[in-house]
Design a protein around this nucleic acid. Structure first.
Lengths: 235, 235
DNA sequence: GCAAAAGTGTTATCACTACACCCATGG
DNA sequence: CCATGGGTGTAGTGATAACACTTTTGC
């Protein structure tokens, strides 16, 4: 029984802005588009929403198809709807942004999609309005990371404080005072010190930490103020 | 030339969560649904996206149809996509929330839609997933208002500090210390004191203020921290 | 023994909170 | 003259920011 019969139905897609961190730089996972138009150009990984799935399911399906990963941090960003955004046919697209530990599958990058990690800073031009999507996602990431402990999603389960700081510095394209940074981070009580050290990045070695998952979930909504003068970075 | 031909097209709607403030309480503008199913039940104002309009245009069109107002503060909230959210036919809906000065059109409420302002606190049960939309909008409003000077959108162009405080108290269902509140608000430099007083709410009268529009726009993205202990309110 | 990164402490400043009284006016 | 809401000031506390030196160890 189909009512609403006078209305126009529209194609609905999901596009994923996938961020990773390699220890120095923020990266973006892109694919080479396999269908016309714009075949061969760089694009976000995306796909059409299927009849019986909701958007989160669609986004997870797309991410898994590309990376093989499940349980990835993902949030809905915004819906893009310019009638001409896709020249073939009107398509609205819901952008999701995802944070993944780049090491979890650096190797298993699906050949099928010609996927590649590129530096966020000097990424190539993308098709359609995907550039705008990436810019918005970056803004949102900075915004959210200033207030919530979201960036742990980009690190492996064991990480050092200097690594964490590098990540924040990459996100905000800035340097922070290491004494203040580690004091602030440790004062949240979210981190559990391990006995081993990471000796790859220095001779002295830096202690590993792990997230206290319980506290992480409990405090996720709290305002934590990880970075000094957040105003400066969120314009 | 239509490619993508194998894909399913889906109905796309916009629903507006419209907030107002009457001096004491936060209100929500609802309509009585005029079509089956659920005809006669309370609902958010919404409508289908038309072929040549984007979502913002659709939301503005819907809001204007209902209230006659243009240039209203509005932001995209989230897209709701459960395949069964509308029992008639699959429809995804993009929720927008809007803030309006309730006095601007209290009277011109369109009879056509049986629109009514209801208290947000004891609103009736709404159709479909509109209850969820309202809850998310309220959360988002609290979140955003804790950091950004967004609530001025709910007030007339001239307002008093006690009025502003009542608004914040209504939003957070709490009371705040009036000395700290006015100091904090005035310290932003966003308000321009007027010479007249509002004598309706007290014998002494309270000075009117206006927003400094220039600074308002410039500072909109700043973290202003209008309320004490924001953590408390945002869980 | 030296280069390179890790780790740690103190002080000054600022922002926030809690708190109580006087003011102006209409009735 | 009194009841009502408007308006203001201070002191204590806690958070933040600025700043430099010592430690460890691989080479």
């Amino acid at each position: 029984m189909t009512r609403y019969s006078k209305q126009t139905r529209i194609l609905v897609a999901v596009d994923c802005i996938i961020f990773g961190f390699d220890g120095h730089d923020i990266k973006l996972l892109l694919v080479k588009r396999g269908l016309e138009p714009e075949s061969g150009k760089w694009s976000l990984m995306g796909g059409f929403v299927q009849p019986r799935e909701n958007l989160r399911q669609a986004a997870n399906r797309i991410l898994q198809k590309l990376t093989g990963l499940q349980g990835v941090y993902m949030e809905q960003l915004r819906t893009f709807s310019d009638p001409d955004r896709d020249p073939v046919e009107r398509t609205i697209s819901i952008a999701y942004f995802a944070l993944i530990d780049i090491h979890k599958y650096e190797k298993q990058l699906s050949e099928d999609y010609h996927a590649e990690w590129v530096l966020l800073k000097d990424r190539p031009r993308l098709i359609f309005d995907h550039n705008e999507m990436v810019e918005l996602a970056q803004k949102q990431l900075r915004y959210k990371a200033a207030l919530h402990p979201i960036l742990f999603e980009l690190l492996p389960s064991k990480f050092t404080i200097p690594q964490l700081q590098s990540l924040y510095e990459a996100i905000y394209d800035n340097t922070f005072d290491n004494r203040n940074f580690s004091r602030k981070v440790l004062s949240t009580g979210l981190l559990i010190k391990q006995k081993e050290k990471d000796k790859l990045n220095s001779k002295k070695g830096a202690f590993y930490y792990r997230l206290d998952k319980r506290k992480y979930k409990a405090n996720f909504q709290s305002f934590l103020n990880f970075i000094p003068n957040p105003d400066k970075f969120l314009i």
